[in-house]
């Protein structure tokens, strides 16, 4: 009887593993099967000359260039907001906060991390409405507001990774500098932060991945299907994940659909690349920093 139960459990676990692996193979395999042949310069630049597209002399109509430019700008801007704020907050939590303050902040950041991205998007949208009504009539959903909303989405990740990277440092590293007369600040800047850097950077890379793949937030805050390369931070823009979403229901012909497959492969590749990079940095950097000392 017991033997039978054991066998069933073992069999079941192998079966689950097989199902999961076949699903992942089906997803990636299907994408590659349908989309690999579209991969090439034409996928990004369409029929436009790549050089003049890059120099913004000509607008690309049938390629992914505007969407990629939009995603790149969006990621850069939101990370630009989130890194200073998130790192500082993480440092405060790890190094300065008292037990009670920390508890309250922990709860709030857990909550922020758990909020569905569409709720953050809705917040960004209502912020736009508010600003439009009370500050300037010129403000509409745009790149700037999207990046701010996205920054709030990734903020808790950056805070957490900074905090954990600092808190995981061994006690003797923490105390040596102080014992030699360094002030708290000096200890933080010259001893703790360099050692925690790997953890912080890998967290930031994961946050970039979230920025690049998120669709719900930008959907509500200014992304559109066709806008060209954004001319200013106050204009509409295109983005890779939204393009994939849009094409999936609105494709007009097989060629557009093929571009959709290409875009999906591209986004998958970008996200996995960031993911791999984060992993490598996390694994290798601490040793380097350590051996230099």
């Amino acid at each position: 009887m017991g033997r039978l139960v054991e066998r069933i459990i073992v069999l079941f676990s192998w079966l689950s593993g097989a199902i999961l692996l076949s699903v992942i193979c089906a997803v990636t395999g299907y994408l590659c099967f349908k989309g690999l042949k579209t991969i090439g310069p034409a996928l990004i630049f369409g029929s436009t000359d790549p050089m003049s597209a890059l120099l913004l002399r000509q607008r690309v109509f049938d390629g992914l260039f505007p969407a990629m430019a939009g995603t790149l700008l969006l990621v850069l801007m939101s990370v630009g907001w989130a890194i200073p704020l998130g790192t500082a907050a993480g440092i405060y939590l790890a190094e300065y906060a008292g037990v009670k303050t920390k508890k309250i902040f922990d709860l709030l950041f857990d909550l922020l991390a758990g909020l569905p991205s569409i709720v953050i998007g809705l917040f960004g949208f209502s912020l736009t409405l508010f600003l439009n009504r009370h500050v300037s009539k010129e403000l509409h959903p745009c790149l700037l507001l999207s990046s701010i909303a996205l920054a709030f989405l990734i903020l808790p990740y950056i805070i957490r990774t900074t905090q954990i990277a600092l808190e995981n440092l061994p006690m003797h590293n923490r105390l040596t500098g102080l014992a030699m007369g360094a002030t708290r600040m000096q200890n933080l800047v010259h001893v703790l932060l360099p050692q925690a850097l790997a953890g912080m950077v890998s967290g930031i890379l994961l946050a970039i991945g979230r920025c690049a793949e998120d669709t719900a937030v930008i959907m509500l805050t200014g992304v559109v299907a066709s806008a060209g390369v954004p001319r200013s931070v106050l204009s509409h823009y295109e983005a890779l994940p939204f393009y994939i979403f849009y094409i999936s229901s609105q494709y007009a012909n097989q060629q557009e659909l093929a571009t959709g497959y290409g875009a999906a492969i591209l986004l998958l590749f970008i996200c996995l690349l960031l993911f791999g990079l984060a992993f490598v940095i996390k694994k290798n950097l601490p040793c380097q920093v350590f051996s230099q000392r």
Binding site: A88, A89, A97, L108, F109, L112, F123, F152, L155, P156
Partner: peptide, 26 residues
Amino acid sequence: ERAVERLFFAAAFVSAFVTLFIFGFM
């Protein structure tokens, strides 16, 4: 040092405040 600590606290406070602010806005 105290100024920097205040700055860090301000960052944490703003981030936490946003969480409540989102609820209030909705």
